[in-house]
Design a protein around this nucleic acid. Sequence first.
DNA 1: GGGGTGACCCAGT
DNA 2: TACTGGGCCACCC
Length: 101
Amino acid sequence: MDAEEYVEAVLALVERIPPGRVMSYGAVADALADVSGRASARRIGTIMARYGGGVPWHRVVAADGRLPPGNEVRARKRHAEDGTPMRGHKVDMRAATWHPS
DNA sequence: GGGGTGACCCAGT
DNA sequence: TACTGGGCCACCC
């Protein structure tokens, strides 16, 4: 699987995350590990930063619920619309974490 | 080829 | 809760 296909796989998975739920970068990496063979949270962060524009990027957050740097304001607004469970400015991971079934 | 960087993560303090 | 150090891996000088 080449780099371009990997990006496509990441974006395809992010599109499957339902409104009001989220996945951490690491969770996305793990979920794709089966298909891609390799995974690292760091790669997912880079991919989202560069190619995430066309998907619901706000549904991918850091493992502790922090929103992506530089886009906290926009992300908060969208989570408010989605009805994502929040704890202050962070996502309530215990309630919002989703993983593909 | 070598070294810095980043929308990360985890364990330890 | 906040910081640190180590590990991580693709990208870009």
